[in-house]
C-alpha cells in the first residue's frame, strides 16, 4: 500500500496497547449519519487517526504527539490537519529542524507527488535559511534524477533559487538534463527561467545569441521536439522583427524541410515567419513543393497556403487549426 514508510510498518504495536498512551481516550471520526461518500478505513489507520484527534483536540504539545503525527503521515501524507499540527509541535517543542528535514526526505521518497510534503519542506527550509540552500538543491536533484519532469520538485527548486540563491550552476544543470533527454520540457522551462531571471547572466537580451546557437543544434538533433521550437520562439519574445531577420531561424527550417522527415514544426515555424513578414526565397519554395508528394487537386496560390495544405494532410488531428491558419492568410492580389 502506498503511503506507508516501510520500516515503520513491521512489528507495529497498536497504540491502545502502548503504555505511554493508556491515559488517552481516542476520538472516532464522525462521518455523519449516512455518508455521501462512505469510507471504510483500515483498522490501523482508524486507530492512529482516533488518537490523533484526541491529542489534536486537547492541543497536547508533547513528543508523543509529535511521533503520532509521524505515524499518521506515514499512513496518509495528504492530510493538511496532521501537517499543521506537526508544525505547531515543531515550533513549541523547539525540535532540531535538520532532523525534521531528514524526516520529510524520507516521507517524500515514497510519496513525492504530494503538495503537503513539499509545502512542509519549504517551511523547514525557510526556517533554516541560507544554510538550507545546498541541501534543498541537492534534494530536488535527487528527485529529478528519478523523475526529471517532477512538477513539485521543479517548483521547489525555483523557490530555492529565488529565495536562497544558487544560480551559478543552474544553466549547467539544464545542459546536463537536456543532454540526457532533449524532450524534457521541464528542463527547457528551467533553462528559460535561468536565462531570464538569473542575476549572473544579464537577462534574455544578453543570452539570446548563444542560446539561439544551442537551440538550433538541439532542433537539428531532434526536429520533432515541440519544446526546443517553442524555446527558440521564446528567445525572441516581443521581438518579432529580430525573429524574422535572424537567418539562423529560417535556415534551420530550410535544413529540416530538406530532410523531408519530422518537418512538422519546421513547416509551422516557417509559416509563422511568413505571417510575421518573412519573404522566403526559391530554396524555401522548392523545399516546400518537394513535400507535396500527393495531389491536392487545386493548386495553392502561394507558399503559405501550400504549407497549410501540407499540414492539414500530415497533422490530421489538428486539421481545423491548419484550415483556420490558412483562412487568416492575406489574399494574394
Amino acid at each position: 500500500m502506498a503511503g506507508i514508510i516501510e520500516d515503520e510498518n513491521d512489528d507495529r504495536v497498536p497504540i491502545s496497547l502502548r503504555p505511554e498512551w493508556s491515559d488517552v481516550t481516542p476520538i472516532p471520526q464522525d462521518d455523519g449519519p449516512n455518508p455521501v461518500v462512505p469510507i471504510n478505513y483500515s483498522e490501523e489507520f482508524s486507530e492512529v487517526m482516533d488518537y490523533f484527534r484526541a491529542v489534536y483536540f486537547a492541543n497536547e504539545h508533547s513528543s508523543r504527539a509529535l511521533s503520532l503525527t509521524a505515524e499518521a503521515i506515514g499512513l496518509n501524507a495528504g492530510n493538511y490537519t496532521v501537517w499543521h499540527f506537526r508544525r505547531l509541535l515543531l515550533e513549541s517543542l523547539k525540535v532540531d529542524l535538520h532532523v525534521e528535514r531528514e524526516f520529510v526526505g524520507k516521507v517524500a521518497s515514497g510519496n513525492s507527488k504530494n503538495y503537503q510534503i513539499w509545502h512542509h519542506r519549504r517551511w523547514v527550509a525557510e526556517k533554516l535559511g541560507l544554510e538550507a540552500r545546498n541541501s534543498e538543491l541537492e534534494f530536488t536533484k535527487e528527485i529529478l534524477s528519478i523523475d526529471a519532469k517532477h512538477y513539485h520538485a521543479w517548483s521547489h527548486r525555483q523557490w530555492v533559487l529565488q529565495t536562497l540563491g544558487g544560480w551559478e550552476d543552474e544553466l549547467n544543470y539544464c545542459n546536463e538534463l537536456l543532454a540526457e533527454d532533449m524532450f524534457n520540457n521541464s528542463a527547457w522551462n528551467q533553462r528559460y527561467f535561468v536565462i531570464t531571471r538569473s542575476p549572473f547572466l544579464g537577462g534574455l537580451k544578453a543570452m539570446r545569441d548563444s542560446e539561439v546557437l544551442y537551440t538550433v543544434e538541439a532542433i537539428i538533433s531532434y526536429p520533432e521536439n515541440e519544446s526546443s521550437w517553442r524555446y527558440l520562439r521564446g528567445l525572441f519574445k516581443d521581438e518579432s522583427a529580430l525573429y524574422v531577420n535572424d537567418t539562423r531561424v529560417s535556415s534551420v527550417c530550410l535544413k529540416i524541410l530538406k530532410t523531408k522527415s519530422n518537418y512538422l514544426f519546421a513547416l509551422s515555424t516557417l509559416l509563422d515567419l511568413i505571417c510575421l513578414g518573412y519573404h522566403p526565397n526559391e530554396d524555401f519554395k522548392d523545399a516546400v513543393e518537394a513535400l507535396r508528394t500527393w495531389d491536392f487537386g487545386e493548386q495553392d496560390s502561394d507558399i503559405a497556403r501550400t504549407i497549410c495544405s501540407i499540414l492539414e494532410k500530415v497533422d490530421p488531428i489538428r486539421v481545423n487549426y491548419w484550415i483556420w491558419r490558412k483562412s487568416r492568410l492575406p489574399q494574394v492580389a
Partner: peptide, 15 residues
C-alpha cells in the same frame, strides 16, 4: 464508491 475496506483510496479519501 470507497466501500472496499483497506483500499488505498479509502485512506487517502478520508481527508
Amino acid at each position: 464508491v470507497e466501500k472496499k475496506k483497506d483500499s488505498f483510496e479509502s485512506v487517502v479519501m478520508e481527508h
